[in-house]
Structure formats: C-alpha cells, structure tokens
C-alpha cells in the first residue's frame, strides 16, 4: 500500500518552507549543522541539509527559525513556501513506487531514514527526504510547484500496481 498526499493542496495545509544558504564558518551554518544529505526534526521544523551550503527548513516552525538565524557573514534566506511544493509518499511500497520513476537507490543502506538527496522523479528534479512516519517508510518530495498536476498523475499511475 502506498499513500500519496500533496501537502500544499490548500492554503490551510501549505507547508512553510525556507531555504537558508550559508557558507562554511558562518554562524548560521554552525547553528543548523547536520551532515550534507541528512535531515533532522527539531521541534516543529524539519531541518534538511540538502546541499553542502544549503538547508531547507520545513514545517510550521520554519519561518521563525529562519527569522531567528544570525545571517552575518555570507548567509541568506529565501522563503520558498510557494516555489517548492511538498508531496508525501508513505507506505511499504513507497520506495518501489519511487524506483519506478527515479534512478536513485532507495534501499535502507543507501537511503536510510533521515537521508536527503536530489533525484529526477518522472523527469522532474526533486529534493527527497526519507522521513518515516511512525515507523512506516515515508518520503517527502519537494519539487517545483508548476509540475504538480503532471507529477501527481505520474506518481499515482506508478503507485497503482501496489
């Protein structure tokens, strides 16, 4: 079974999202920490080090966390709540579904819970966070919002066999 949810389908459920860019050695980088390619839930915010110099802050706590950062040195933030849209895919067959559309290895040893990566899914570049929900395999996919109609169609089609 696979469950696919477009989290930003309505203004009420839209996930606040911020991108933080910070060079090595800045206060913001030190505060956010994490290894590149990993994610961690901190209170109401999922913090993802999605690139060596970029973090995503996702969730209701994101605006406040972004606003509270010390942006001295070479650091900046951008509100990406409306640029990147969030889709969650949950279930035992979630990895099998993604493997139909994307080339990354979603197995536990290559993409454990808390891992983050970029991969093309059905031809759309996605930022993907493995973010299991109560022990059930789950992935948060962040993609350019303009693709969402097409993307959900492709994702549901791929999931239909499970």
């Amino acid at each position: 079974m696979v469950e696919i949810t477009h989290l930003d389908a309505s203004p009420d459920t839209r996930v606040p999202k911020a991108s933080v860019r910070a060079a090595d050695g800045t206060a913001a980088a030190a505060t956010l920490g994490l290894n590149f390619g990993s994610a961690e839930q901190r209170g109401e915010t999922l913090v993802v080090r999605i690139r060596p110099d970029e973090w995503y802050l996702l969730g209701d706590g994101a605006p406040a966390m972004a606003a509270g950062l010390d942006l001295s040195g070479f650091a900046s933030t951008v509100d990406i709540s409306h640029s990147r849209t969030a889709v969650r895919i949950t279930g035992d067959c979630a990895a099998d579904t993604l493997s139909k559309l994307g080339s990354a290895d979603f197995s536990d040893h290559m993409t454990p819970n808390g891992a983050a990566l970029g991969n093309g899914i059905a031809g759309v570049t996605c930022d993907i966070v493995r973010d299991d929900q109560r022990g059930v395999r789950s992935y948060l996919l962040l993609l350019d919002g303009s693709f969402i109609t097409y993307f959900l169609g492709a994702l549901h089609d791929a999931a239909s066999e499970f």
Binding site: S19, R21, S76, V78, I80, H82, S83, G145, S146
Partner: peptide, 12 residues
C-alpha cells in the same frame, strides 16, 4: 564572489 542564486519562477 559572494552571491546566492535561488530560482523563484513558480513561487511568484
């Protein structure tokens, strides 16, 4: 050079 570039085409 210190410049951060973020695409916001769809966000706006």
């Amino acid at each position: 050079w210190q410049v951060h570039v973020t695409p916001v085409t769809t966000g706006l």
